Amino acid sequence: MSVSTASQASAVNHWVVLGLEPGADSQALKRAFRQQARRWHPDLNGNDPHAEEQFKAVNEAYAVLSDPLLRQQWEQGLDTAQAAAAGLDPFAHGFPDFHDYVDELFGPPRRRHTPRPATSPEPATQPRADVTTAPPPPPPVMASTDCESLVELTPEQALQGQRVELDLPDGTSVEVWTPAMAGDGWRLRLEGVAPGGADHFLQLRVRTSDDLRIDGLRVLYQLDLSPAEGALGCSVVVPTLDGPVQLRVPPGSSSGRLLRLRGRGLQHADQRGDQLVEIRIVVPSALTEAEEALYARLQQLAADLDGERS
């Protein structure tokens, strides 16, 4: 039994073509279209004979789903392929460059020119006067303010590099790859992409739930100790990427001292990083009377010892 053209067209699931769940919003629709168009653009898939047809399917899916009327017709099972193309094949004379094509679809809207009302012509009997108009005032200067976004990465994403897509306040979408072996606290600069020609910065946050900070192949951890633990030494349990381990803190450890756990960092090829544990001595914000008396006694002993040395 033959199937009609309308039935064939309505059988195409445009949501599936773009890899979206039904009812996705316009921003998700744009992102999915960019990704699929880049994936199937014929210029980027010269050895794939299937890419041309798939690229057309991606464009038809976006044309239908982004147009409320065409989308309604498609959902009702009507033939939207002919309506979407308006009787013409937009790729009959070849495929445009991918970036030019995306810019044409999603480029920033141009300012509209508002025409001035026409003036009535002067009577022919009156002589025409030469009128010199003042030049238009210069456009206002837009103050540029740098913007910043926080990007959270897992240790694996920071190690390999991750694609990040940002939607700026003016509607511009920016795609950037973070560098491999990036670290927590890195600040990446995107020059001139913010409104007014300002820069946009990406602040990278690469931490685990145990407060392990990633910096390339190294893992950093801050260990808080009491003054007594730092002075006398202690044995503590610290987290690592491979699970908790026992660490011996030597006596006389002050804030800023680094203890190394060899081979407890990230691994890349045949390289393996270490974990550095930074000591931080923390004094209680409120002391009991007994603690205050002990600290006063320590202060007096230190003063007496300095007097003997001098």
Results as ranks from 00 to 15, higher is better:
3 V>Y: 04
4 S>A: 15
4 S>G: 12
5 T>N: 13
5 T>D: 13
6 A>P: 00
10 S>V: 05
11 A>R: 07
17 V>Y: 08
18 L>A: 01
19 G>M: 11
20 L>C: 07
20 L>D: 08
21 E>W: 08
23 G>I: 09
23 G>N: 04
24 A>Q: 10
27 Q>A: 09
29 L>P: 01
31 R>H: 10
32 A>C: 04
32 A>M: 11
33 F>T: 12
33 F>I: 09
33 F>V: 11
36 Q>R: 15
43 D>Y: 11
46 G>A: 14
51 A>C: 12
53 E>K: 05
54 Q>C: 06
58 V>R: 09
61 A>K: 02
65 L>H: 09
65 L>A: 05
66 S>T: 12
68 P>F: 09
68 P>A: 10
69 L>D: 09
75 E>P: 00
77 G>N: 07
78 L>W: 08
79 D>I: 03
81 A>F: 09
83 A>T: 06
83 A>D: 03
84 A>G: 12
88 L>M: 06
89 D>F: 08
92 A>V: 10
93 H>Y: 12
95 F>K: 05
97 D>R: 10
97 D>S: 11
98 F>H: 14
98 F>D: 10
98 F>C: 11
101 Y>I: 12
102 V>T: 15
104 E>D: 15
105 L>C: 14
108 P>W: 02
108 P>Q: 11
109 P>A: 15
110 R>P: 06
115 P>T: 11
118 A>N: 14
118 A>I: 14
119 T>M: 13
121 P>F: 04
122 E>Q: 14
123 P>E: 06
125 T>C: 14
127 P>D: 13
129 A>L: 13
132 T>S: 06
135 P>K: 04
136 P>L: 15
137 P>F: 13
137 P>S: 15
139 P>V: 12
142 M>A: 15
145 T>D: 13
145 T>H: 13
155 P>R: 01
157 Q>V: 07
159 L>H: 02
161 G>N: 11
162 Q>G: 02
162 Q>C: 13
168 L>I: 04
171 G>C: 05
171 G>E: 02
174 V>T: 08
177 W>H: 12
177 W>A: 10
179 P>T: 03
182 A>S: 15
183 G>N: 01
183 G>H: 01
184 D>S: 05
184 D>Q: 03
184 D>I: 04
184 D>Y: 07
189 R>T: 13
194 A>K: 06
195 P>D: 15
195 P>V: 15
197 G>F: 09
197 G>D: 08
199 D>M: 04
200 H>I: 09
200 H>W: 14
206 V>M: 03
208 T>I: 03
209 S>E: 12
216 G>Y: 08
217 L>K: 03
218 R>S: 07
220 L>T: 01
221 Y>F: 10
224 D>F: 00
224 D>Y: 00
227 P>C: 08
229 E>T: 02
229 E>A: 10
231 A>P: 00
234 C>M: 07
236 V>I: 08
238 V>I: 12
242 D>C: 05
242 D>H: 10
248 R>M: 10
251 P>N: 04
252 G>N: 03
252 G>S: 02
254 S>P: 00
255 S>Q: 02
258 L>C: 00
258 L>R: 02
260 R>Y: 00
265 G>P: 01
265 G>N: 00
268 H>A: 07
268 H>M: 06
269 A>G: 04
269 A>C: 02
272 R>V: 11
274 D>C: 01
275 Q>P: 01
281 I>Q: 05
283 V>N: 08
284 P>A: 14
289 E>T: 10
291 E>H: 08
292 E>S: 15
293 A>V: 03
294 L>R: 09
294 L>N: 07
306 D>E: 12
